[in-house]
């Protein structure tokens, strides 16, 4: 019994310690002034790796989610004879919630896990260590470009996801189920507000991008440099990112759309 309490306490301390390490780690990464000449090509390369290569899964998922929203929305709304509101429903759901959240979950699974595994492997094969011995700080050279790339790529992916989703919804609603196109767009435009809906969704995706990238690079940098350690770090990246995204989504939604 006493052992269990003790191990519970140790677990708590471990969690707090790893939070502390990740904070110090973040400070170390961000404290470096980016050097435009050497830093820029590295950043571009990482945006390619985490952003462009995630584009396929984001576009395909966005399309299908938009189409499903169109179908489900039509079924429910036609009971009330207000199929025309389908555009409004699809756009609001995507722009406010599903765009940022689903993109962040996909991003954690596609790009976050890859980042963790890559950095973990660099640690295991002593590449980070050897860089340090060459007088190059791996936090600035390896970690910082990856963190910034995630931060930049994620909102772009979320925007693309929303647009593709709305297009998919229109495909089903207008082309297939025969909702009048004018009222589809008209309803949408009268209810979606640029600042309140689109920008708030954008802010969400910026926050999610930062958190996912942070978790991914930290788990890679902090992992136990063995094959078991890397695989557990990769799992942790996906689990922690997903939980963080869903939790933060609730907080942000409450702040942005709640009535306080």
């Amino acid at each position: 019994m006493l052992d269990r309490i003790a191990s519970l306490g140790r677990l708590g301390l471990d969690i707090v310690a790893s939070l502390g390490r990740s904070g110090r780690f973040l400070a170390g990464v961000l404290s470096g002034v980016p050097r435009p000449v050497t830093g820029f090509p590295l950043l571009v390369k990482q945006i390619y790796a985490v952003g462009v290569l995630s584009l396929a899964i984001v576009v395909v998922s966005g399309l299908f989610i938009g189409m499903v929203l169109g179908l489900q929305g039509y079924t429910i709304l036609s009971d009330y004879g207000s199929e025309a509101a389908i555009g409004q429903m699809i756009a609001l759901t995507l722009v406010r919630e599903l765009g940022p959240v689903v993109t962040a979950l996909l991003f954690a699974g596609r790009a976050g896990s890859a980042l963790t595994a890559e950095i973990g492997l660099m640690k295991a094969t002593e590449q980070l260590s050897s860089m340090e011995m060459m007088g190059v700080d791996p936090l600035r050279r390896v970690i910082a470009p990856r963190l910034w790339a995630g931060f930049i790529a994620m909102p772009i992916l979320a925007l693309i996801f929303s647009v593709v989703g709305i297009w998919g919804g229109m495909l089903v609603g207008v082309e297939w189920l025969g909702v009048f196109e004018g009222s589809f767009w008209g309803n949408m435009q009268s209810s979606v507000d640029f600042v309140d809906d689109v920008m708030n969704g954008f802010i969400k995706s910026v926050v999610f991008g930062f958190v996912c990238a942070w978790i991914a690079v930290f788990q890679g940098y902090d992992c136990v440099p063995t094959s078991a350690g890397i695989s557990s770090a990769t799992t942790k990246t996906v689990v922690y990112s997903s939980l963080a995204v869903l939790g933060l989504d609730f907080v942000l939604t409450a702040v942005m759309f709640g009535d306080f």
């Binding site: 945006i47 390619y48 952003g51 462009v52 584009l55 756009a91 722009v95 790529a153 909102p155 772009i156 992916l157 925007l159 693309i160 929303s162 647009v163 709305i166 767009w185 949408m188 435009q189 979606v192 507000d193 640029f194 809906d197 689109v198 954008f202």
Partner: peptide, 17 residues
């Protein structure tokens, strides 16, 4: 990729909202 992101933002601004 960045241009696509910007275009998506424009679509959301003009067509959707």
């Amino acid at each position: 990729f960045m241009v696509a992101g910007l275009a998506a933002l424009l679509v959301l601004a003009l067509q959707v909202s």
